[in-house]
Design a binder for these strands. Structure first.
Lengths: 204, 204
DNA sequence: TGTACATCAGTGAACGCGCGTTCACTGATGTAC
DNA sequence: TGTACATCAGTGAACGCGCGTTCACTGATGTAC
């Protein structure tokens, strides 16, 4: 059956996944090691067989989440034309349902936590660059530098929009922020419908 | 001399100011009540004479910081022409020196903390609206709705840029994000110099 | 094929520390006479 | 003006709880013969 090494790797992955969900929802400081292990179907004692400390877990979770996003964006940019890839990225990123749940981009949910932890900061440096590079592939512009500029601004807008949407005290304002950001990043008429339908899906 | 009520109010204000600095730098969960009181020149026991709980302090600090920003922006929009007001707001918001220190906008430093605390979220709702309204006054656009849209996007871009700049592992990338955001929000050639000179000032 | 042993992922009790909160006390300031 | 008292902001010891981390132990799985 499953080799020991593989079982071990699977458990480790389960812990990472559980932490990814909980950290994004409640913040790194808002979740204890015991809660993470419980979510992963284990008891807290075993945690240190897989990670040297909670700090290290936070760094690796941040890295894993952002690396996954960078990879996904890069694949999208390669398998689709620019417009389609961009539309997919933006409308998923700004999807009100995702934003309302804790499942949105780690940059927006634990970005501040990462910024304050040197180890996490170091761990995600490459991933942030990867996300920007992939995004630049999807944006129009004659020169590479122009696309780079646009990628920097586009990611800023997306991150900020999600932060504000999560912070807004009313659903209407939250949706308004997300719609405005999507409209500014996509050709007219593209995003609005998808975002609106996202809200419907959440109600159902 | 100072009436008792006034002394009390001053002490309360000192606690708020101290918490404003520390919370922005280390996050709400990263700072204890005792550290806040020490920074305010007091001992921890007296805290509960001024606030019912740390939760309440977090909510009031968030409100105070954002209300101040909203007020400042509104005054700028009233005392200057649109272009000047916008340039001032944007270049201050994206100033690398401010961003590197913890003194930047509370939306970017404790925005995530606020989003997770119902009491804080409720406390800042009006301030967020105030910031958006003031910003809309400074943006071009024929209709009010157009300016509103632009304000939503502009604030998203500024917030996201600062979050990313603080998260970046290298100064060069951090500055690049801030410069790109400023360039996208201001007429060409305006902001870049100011932001560049901000970096010089930090070194000196 | 069956038995004894070794390995090691996982358990859960325990430890120590820090943090939010409480409370009896202090001492400075304002007031009454 | 001076004295006695009341008020109350601030002090600092103490409490209880939760969290990160450790560690002796368990029990399932793989291996040697």
């Amino acid at each position: 059956m499953a080799e020991p090494a593989q079982r071990r790797a699977e458990t480790r992955q389960r812990i990472l996944t559980a932490a990814g969900e909980l950290f994004r929802e409640h913040g790194v400081d808002g979740v204890g090691v015991d809660a993470v292990m419980k979510e992963a179907g284990l008891t807290h004692g075993g945690f240190y067989l897989h990670f040297p400390s909670k700090e290290a877990l936070a760094a690796e979770v941040s890295h894993a989440l952002l690396a996954r996003a960078a990879k996904k964006w890069l694949e999208l940019s390669r398998s689709h034309d620019r417009e389609t890839a961009l539309e997919t990225i933006v409308s998923q990123y700004l999807d009100p349902v995702r934003v309302a749940s804790g499942q949105c981009c780690a940059l927006t949910t634990i970005g501040t936590d990462v910024a304050r932890r040197t180890s996490s900061k170091t761990a995600v440096g490459g991933d942030l660059r990867g996300m920007l590079d992939a995004l630049a592939q999807c944006l129009p512009g004659r020169s590479a530098e122009r696309r780079r500029q646009r990628a920097l601004t586009a990611l800023s807008t997306m991150v900020g929009a999600v932060v504000l949407a999560r912070l807004a005290d009313e659903q209407a304002l939250s949706d308004e922020v997300l719609r405005a950001a999507a409209a500014s990043l996509l050709p007219a008429g593209k995003a609005v419908n998808r975002l609106a339908s996202g809200v419907e899906a959440a109600a159902g």
